[in-house]
Each structure stands twice: as structure tokens, then as C-alpha cells.
Nucleic acid binder design. Sequence first.
DNA 1: TTAGTTTTTTACTGATTAGTACAAATAAAG
DNA 2: CTTTATTTGTACTAATCAGTAAAAAACTAA
Lengths: 205, 205
Amino acid sequence: MSDSQTQVGRPRAFDLDKALQKALEVFWEKGYEGASLPDLTEAMGINKPSLYAAFGNKEQLFLKAVELYENRPCAFFKPALLQPTAYQVAEHMLFGAAAANADPSHPKGCVVVQGALSCSDSANNVKQALIEKRRNGELQLQQRLEQAKAAGELPADADCGALASYLVVQIQGMSIQAANGASAERLQQVAAIALQGFKAMLQPG
Amino acid sequence: MSDSQTQVGRPRAFDLDKALQKALEVFWEKGYEGASLPDLTEAMGINKPSLYAAFGNKEQLFLKAVELYENRPCAFFKPALLQPTAYQVAEHMLFGAAAANADPSHPKGCVVVQGALSCSDSANNVKQALIEKRRNGELQLQQRLEQAKAAGELPADADCGALASYLVVQIQGMSIQAANGASAERLQQVAAIALQGFKAMLQPG
DNA sequence: TTAGTTTTTTACTGATTAGTACAAATAAAG
DNA sequence: CTTTATTTGTACTAATCAGTAAAAAACTAA
């Protein structure tokens, strides 16, 4: 057990969480490779040696920022999985994505989608990490749908993998649309149409 | 009128179109910023001064490569707009995207989506050019749907802008799914569900 | 053969990249 | 006060970035 009050040495002059939040905003806007260290240190209000001492290196800083992104209070993905029915899961997922991707209080789109989609070879670790995160999210959604299927909410021949992919395509596509400048209202219209498509899959036949 | 046979000076030792095709493949895989000039020159089989003499600079080379991408024979977007009915337009668009995004004969996904989604400030011109291309494609699709609406294929209160956004979300989302490693079969399943959603919008009410 | 034109090759530029060495500064502990 | 531990700011490194200067090479025209 380390006692955070009895630390020896010069005290850190910045707040770790606030600095990470600032780093997230920079990565959110410019992506992993597009964000330079001067971009990051300026936004975080610290200099390079402080950044490296606190977060390791650029790659680790990015992964910690993404972790913060996924667990921030207004994240919609994990809470949507907890909805009581498959329809409500889809509804919360789609309208949550519509609201989050166009939220004016932060950069448009999704860090997990845009952070390192195409990149140089030197960013391949980060690219793969984001692919894993996207795949993992889709798998969680698929399992939630399979649970609903076992509960009789979906037809016996429903393909939960395809349905999960369909919903994830909506979320990821909305992320691109948001980067294009689409409004929250427009994304809500898309979510409504997509939800109709999902609803039709809940009926047998 | 310039006669290509009576050119004076040392003849170019490479094929312009083939070199551009190679550049496209590199940009397709690594994006605009992720593709370095050594990456490009090595793939194109030429050295830097030849590249600059033939194509201007990296930005112009990228834009020419994207133009080649959009007009290549197997591109699906523009041909889909020529289908006789709105339903067939959507059908060709969705299944065309499913096939193209997972085609094993070239890198996965879409250059227009992935080429410069998040980037540094110095790539903002390219980023904006791709946003314009995506918006323009969506607008063309919207106009095609409005034409179908005028022909009585869609309900009188149909929102062609929202419908076009919905279809574009499918295509752009599939591009991300393809980058995740989704198979062509899986993308076809998604296209089938999405088409059902679109079909439901063709009925009044 | 000679002059004129264009491409190719090599070698370079200045700027920027991520990352670090080192000493001054600031705290607690003895 | 001194010692010890940690963070800070400055200044640096080596590598890589896009882009170019200059001369040799390869062609046509005269």
C-alpha cells in the first residue's frame, strides 16, 4: 500500500487526470500520428520530460487516453448493453451514438474509429489495439443479442453476429458522418431508420 | 495540340498510369500522412525528383490517386446511381460496397474514408478535400432519391436527405468493418439487413 | 557532330519527429 | 542543515520528413 500523502521529492505541478483529458482531446481531433508531442505538451500544459515521466511514451499516453475515453461518464456503448431488451439495447446504442458523435462539447466522431485507421508502419501497434477494441465491442454486443435470443426475443434462426455487425456499422458510419459535419438531428434520423431495420429482424420469418 | 510522338528530350523511363496506380495502393493502405515519400517512390519504382516532376508534390499525387480510385472500373458508387429504381440504387450501392470493401485484390476499406480522417494541421487541405468528396457523393445520392420520389417510388413525406445519409452510413461503416477484418460474407449480411431497413421506408406511413 | 531539351541519379537542404541527458528546483526525512 | 528523492526546464540527440540543386544521361533536331 503506497501512501500518496507521504511522497518524498518535488511534488508534481500538474493534475494527472486533467492532463490526460487534454491529451485525449488532442488525439480525438488529430489522431495518434497527427498529434505531435508539441501539440500534446502545449495542450496539457507540461513539457516533454514531465509527459514521459508520467505516462511512459506517446503510445502509452494514447492508450491511456483511449481508456479514459471509453470509461468517461457520457460514453454510451457499455451502458446500452445493460438495457433489459434487445430492442432497447439497439435503441440506446443507436441514439446514443447519434448524440455522442455530434456532441458540440468535444471533437466530432469516435477516437476508437478515427485514432489510427490508416497510419505508417510505426503506428501499427496502436492501429491493432484499436481494431481489437472495435472487435471486442462488437463481440460484446453479439453476446448480448445471443442472450436476448435465448430469452426468446429474437427468432430462433436469427444471426446475432450479423445483427451485431449491422449495429456496429451504424455507429462507425455515424462517426464518419459526424466528421463530415452531420448534425445531431441528421444522425438521429439515421438512427431512427436503422432502428426500424433492426426491429424488422426481431420478427420471425 | 501536342503531338506525343514528337517529344524532345530524354524519354520518361516509367509509365505514368502504372506509377499512379502503385501510389494509390500505398495511400490506400497507409493513408495520406502515413505514406512516406520513400514508401511511395519504392512502390512506384522511381525516385523523388521523377515523382515531383511528374505529379507536382505529395498532396497533388494523393488527389490524383484518389481521382483514379473513384473512376476505376470496379468502383460501385457512380454506376449504382444509374439503376432504374430507388430500390435498385440502394441494392447496388449496399452490395457493391460489401463486395468492394472486402475485395482481397486490393487493400481493405475506402480511400476516401480512410485517407485523411484524422491528421495533423499540415494535412488539412487533403482532409477537407476528402470531406467534400464524401459530402458530394451523399448529395448525388440524395438527388437520385428525390428523382425517384418525384417518380412516385417513395412516399410523399419521405426525407431523401435522411435516406441518403442512412445509405452512406452503411457504406462508410462497412469501410471501417472491412478495416477490422470483416469478411465479404459478413458485409453482405449487413447489406441485406440495411436493405430491408431501406425497403421499409419505401412504404407510405 | 553539335545544340537543345527533358529525365534520371546523387546528394543535399531545413524543418520536424519522438525521445533523453543533465542540472536546477522543491519537497520530505534524518 | 544536510541528505535523499522526485519533478522541472533547457538543451540536446539521432532519425525522418517533404522537397530540391546540380550534373550526368538520353533523347530529337539541325
